[in-house]
């Protein structure tokens, strides 16, 4: 515990199991996200990474175990308390999830207008400040359809930080970006986190992101198979970690989907 009564970890996941109906997705997950840090959750597609974010935001509830955010157990919150908690979170969705019927300005102003009593001139200033932070002040009146992939991601980033959240979650923020946009977005994630004094969780399969994070958790098949600082991950001798970090096509994660014998299938 720190002196002001807050725990050091903004997010604390304790022995969580989760299943969609019969299909088990996560098993015995424990992880901590310290305040002020940028933490990456990495792993192959379909390994349950996004589900972790949904657990933290209370969109789904764990079958077993506990998810603690800012000292509160998310699953036990009443609806009103959960909404209150979500107001302290920002989330960047996989493909941006911008509201397609509003322009860039209204997208960012949306939650200010819905959730606060700020006056329109104040909202205007705040929106322009957020847009300036992601370098898109000049694009305020464009519609989402007119934005390039990288620009849309930056607008979504500005929207995620619209109400200065204490926890920012990124779901595959780099998916489908060109190298320049990728570098821009990853640098923004780091600088915004430090400038806002926020805590960030990045779900990704992009090893480039190792350059901007403090801690890494590697997830495979619904369990955490490795966790540590970037340095530790780079020097790990675990075969799965090596396969992931060195981007090897075959290894503990097999290249071939399970199949009967090749010769047999070809009829030899």
């Amino acid at each position: 515990m720190t002196t002001d009564g807050q725990t050091d970890n903004l997010v604390d996941i304790r022995k969580v199991d989760f299943a969609y109906g019969e299909r088990a997705v996560l098993h015995d997950i424990s992880m901590q996200v310290p305040r002020g840090k940028v933490v990456a959750i990495m792993g192959g597609s379909g390994s349950g990474k996004t589900t972790l974010l949904r657990l933290i935001s209370g969109q789904v509830k764990p079958v077993r175990g506990e998810v603690i955010v800012n000292g509160q157990s998310v699953a036990s919150l009443r609806n009103r308390e959960l909404l209150q908690l979500r107001r302290t979170m920002g989330m960047l969705f996989q493909m941006g999830a911008l509201f397609t019927d509003m322009n860039v300005f209204d997208n960012i102003a949306f939650q200010m207008r819905e959730n606060t009593d700020l006056t329109e001139p104040m909202i205007r200033d705040l929106v322009l400040m957020k847009l300036h932070a992601v370098g898109l002040r000049g694009a305020w009146n464009l519609m989402p359809a007119q934005l390039s992939g990288g620009m849309a991601r930056r607008v979504a980033l500005a929207r995620a930080i619209a109400l200065d959240p204490t926890l920012i979650m990124y779901d595959e923020p780099f998916a489908g970006l060109d190298p320049i946009s990728l570098a821009v977005v990853s640098r923004l994630i780091r600088t915004l986190n430090d400038a806002l004094g926020a805590t960030s969780i990045i779900v990704t399969h992009d090893i480039e992101s190792l350059n901007i994070v403090d801690y890494v958790y590697l997830v495979s098949g619904g369990t955490i198979i490795a966790g540590g600082t970037v340095e530790e991950i780079h020097h790990s001798s675990d075969p799965y970690v090596r396969q992931f970090v060195d981007a090897q096509p075959d290894g503990p994660v097999a290249f071939h989907y399970p199949a009967p014998d090749y010769r047999e299938m070809l009829g030899f």
Binding site: S57, Q59, R87, A97, F99, F110, Q111, N115
Partner: peptide, 10 residues
């Protein structure tokens, strides 16, 4: 995911 985004904005 626009509806999920809205849910996340409370």
């Amino acid at each position: 995911e626009q509806l999920s985004a809205m849910e996340m904005m409370a």
